[in-house]
Amino acid sequence: TAGDKIFHFGACRVSMSMTEIRASFTAIKANIQSRDSIRTLSILSHPHSLHKVKSSDRCCITHHLFTFYVDKVFKHCRTEDSFVNRKISSIANSFLSARRKLGQCREQNNCVCGEESMEKFKQILANYEGLNVTSAAMKSLGELDIFLDWME
């Protein structure tokens, strides 16, 4: 498949190197998920799946989730494994680049989050805050494919 794809988040159109992001995540997924000892809880999917977000809210929620990962998650995922750190860096920098493009479009198109979707995002933050930061960050990173699948 081509390296890059065009994503439509509501009114916003963003090109993203999804193949590269997925390749980086797949390379470290088992390692990251092995560090997640709390199997009974999900950050992104509890209690409701992302798939319940209305399409008109996709632009705003996606931007929130990029910010969630960039601001909160990646920085607490540094490991002793250089290979894992390099792949996390690759994903983090790709998310930063994608968030910038989406942020520009979001301003131009005034993408707002509906109440229901905002509630969903607050639930994700509550799930995150409910754990100690390293566990929450590792679990969130381990669930990255849930976010990637939802975007695709």
């Binding site: 960039v70 601001d71 990646f74 920085k75 540094r78 250089s82 290979f83 750190n85 390099r86 860096s89 983090a92 920098n93 998310f95 930063l96 680049s97």
Partner: peptide, 18 residues
């Protein structure tokens, strides 16, 4: 190497290339 993420969000950390 150091990407923009490391500069802006990870205290300017550097990542070794094994």
């Amino acid at each position: 190497f150091q990407g923009e993420y490391e500069r802006e969000y990870a205290n300017g950390s550097w990542i070794p290339v094994s």
